[in-house]
Design a protein around this nucleic acid. Sequence first.
DNA 1: GTGGCCATGTAAACTGTTACATGATTCT
DNA 2: AGAATCATGTAACAGTTTACATGGCCAC
Lengths: 225, 225
Amino acid sequence: MSLDYILLGLLREPASGYDLKAVFDERIHYFWPAELSQVYPAMQRLEDKGLLRSREAPAKRGPRRRVYQTTAAGHRVLRQWLDESPELGDERIGFLAKVYLMDELRDLSKTRQYFRELREICATRLEELQAIERGWAAQDPHYPDALSARMFHVSLTLRKGLSSLATHVKWCDESLRRIEARMGKERSNGRTIPRHTLDSHRGGHHRTDRVLDSRSRKQGRPAAR
Amino acid sequence: MSLDYILLGLLREPASGYDLKAVFDERIHYFWPAELSQVYPAMQRLEDKGLLRSREAPAKRGPRRRVYQTTAAGHRVLRQWLDESPELGDERIGFLAKVYLMDELRDLSKTRQYFRELREICATRLEELQAIERGWAAQDPHYPDALSARMFHVSLTLRKGLSSLATHVKWCDESLRRIEARMGKERSNGRTIPRHTLDSHRGGHHRTDRVLDSRSRKQGRPAAR
DNA sequence: GTGGCCATGTAAACTGTTACATGATTCT
DNA sequence: AGAATCATGTAACAGTTTACATGGCCAC
């Protein structure tokens, strides 16, 4: 349901669905991704409820655009939502689910490889956010201070991203240390490299050939693909 | 789709849907919550695909139970999933969405209150995880070392929760400092306490009277509640 | 006997993603 | 003429939550 409220918040300035999609992909997607196919119907619903109003906008360069904006009722609804207590909500963290079960592979070098890749992904995204912050600092001489109320709140969220990702990278590093220490112990305990590594043929089969790919009808033969 | 794989992982030891729900609520829900109404059909689907097998179990104290267990095919599918590269995935972080838009309230004391509550929630959950770790340390004299492969991987995920939540609390504290500094500046700039505080009548209306509560049919009058 | 926990499910609703359909304008 | 970008949507599917239905067994 947060999407509706985010829309009300973003449409305090008038914008089209298409405009909004750009905003989502640029700034919002870090905490709330959205697709156009979800945004358009949502805006229509909110207009039907009287929380948004829209008008046909003269289109320079392109076809007709419908521009939406939050109404007074929309502002009230938004403020009521903002005034509610925070909730952590249910986060689904797929990469942790994998780590939790990864003993199944019986091969710590696989776990190590997993953490190395994860570290890379997070470090890259961290740099992305650091670049944003540098940009802000560059065009505002007393950056973290003297911000508008709007930017102040936005900067609180940026800081969250920055600190979360930095910690994430540190966790990967700590994990890699533990994994390597453990691998060292395994070797010195006389265990040789696990034989399961035989499975690693047909090089680099990342993200291909999903087996569990769609719901099968009852009694459908599993092989029938 | 991760749910299916988590089920395959958990059912390396036989268990009923009901058992599994307890495991989810106790350990797994930190990174992947699940409801029974989702677990039961999922297990049936996985059995139809040949990845789980089930048997009727003699029920001491209660009605009949159906106990599931991962098959050899299920193990293969699980290992294939575990072998894929990590992905961050789309996280939806509702509490950040609110902070991002909270300038709308035009009342920093509301933002401060929000962060105080958020800090409390996270600190509580942090203590929860710390208690788990203390429990492990208590019943295992050389705790973080010499773990089974299973527990080693589980402990990697616990450490993630611990470090994430500690950082989260620190972010709340940093934010509270910034908010209070800014409130001080507002006061000294001659601005008095914002008048919007008039809205704060009818004390403590947390989590009540959601306005945007369900999709309205087209053209439904907004007032018709 | 009834309240609580054990146990298994179905149905409907909600939220979100992927794929598709359509067409204008601008740039090369 | 064709590709890229602007622009708006629909349809089908996938994943999850909430509400409901059912019933056994056990303790008080």
